[in-house]
């Protein structure tokens, strides 16, 4: 199907560091955040940004002739990825549990437990928020952990696992958080880049590793699943 409607103008991404950009909140993903990491040889776009003219222009400028990879950390970050992929043609990587949600996307690659990209980024399957949630660890020199919705900003300088009505499996999410601590290792501890809305951080974008709160939070007025 040919898209004839014009896109919104939108806002361009914000540069956080020399190698890291943050796109504006995406309404198609409940205000989720998507990130661009300029790593060599294959830059990555993590989760789907809002499909706007400003986004497309920025992505073409940032790609600079290279073929980046689109990593999706959970089904709530898919947004309008198929339309974005139709326009840009970049390959998409997703955990196998959520690949069935993207039948028209080609090329689409999947992984099961772990994966390593051409640039050395590591992916780990962390089910809980959704069945196919995963995290992306960019080791030094980037030193960032893109945690999708596994860790959500809950206050200024605090990220935690959050249970709410869209949570797929809360005990699995708790186990995934414990496994993630072991998997990342301790030297050096990465900064945290959440894929959820960042409003609770009140202007901060990247959070230090110490912002990861030990306790698990439950959204108020939600019924605990049986």
């Amino acid at each position: 199907m040919t898209l004839t409607s014009s896109l919104e103008q939108g806002r361009p991404p914000q540069q956080i560091r020399e190698d890291l950009w943050l796109f504006p909140p995406n309404r198609d993903c409940l205000g989720g955040s998507s990130w661009w990491l300029d790593c060599v040889p294959e830059p990555v776009l993590i989760d789907c940004p809002p499909l706007t003219e400003a986004t497309l222009q920025a992505l073409e400028r940032l790609a600079a002739g290279r073929i980046p990879r689109l990593l999706l950390t959970n089904r709530e970050g898919h947004g309008r990825v198929r339309r974005l992929q139709e326009r840009l043609g970049w390959p998409v990587l997703v955990q196998e549990q959520e690949a069935y949600l993207l039948p028209g996307v080609d090329p689409l690659e999947t992984f099961a437990q772990t994966h390593r990209t051409a640039s050395g980024l590591r992916l780990l399957w962390t089910p809980g928020p959704t069945p196919g949630s995963c995290v992306v660890h960019a080791p030094a020199p980037w030193n960032v952990l893109f945690c999708g919705r596994l860790l959500v900003p809950v206050a200024v300088g605090v990220l935690a696992g959050l249970q709410h009505r869209r949570t797929f499996h809360w005990p699995r999410q708790q186990r995934s958080l414990e496994r993630l601590r072991d998997w990342v290792g301790s030297d050096p501890l990465p900064s945290l880049a959440s894929g959820a809305g960042l409003g609770a951080l009140r202007g901060e974008r990247l959070a230090p590793w110490s912002a990861w709160a030990d306790g698990f939070h439950q959204a108020p007025h939600q019924e605990t699943p049986t």
């Binding site: 198609d28 993903c29 409940l30 089904r75 709530e76 898919h78 947004g79 309008r80 990825v81 198929r82 339309r83 196998e96 549990q97 690949a99 069935y100 949600l101 993207l102 039948p103 028209g104 099961a112 437990q113 399957w125 089910p127 959704t130 069945p131 499996h169 699995r172 186990r175 995934s176 496994r179």
Partner: peptide, 21 residues
């Protein structure tokens, strides 16, 4: 999911996936 879901998937057989950890 607020994803761009194609409802044709309801007629596809489910693939064999890795069991949950």
């Amino acid at each position: 999911a607020l994803a761009d879901v194609d409802l044709r998937i309801v007629n596809q057989p489910l693939p064999q996936l890795t069991p949950f950890p």
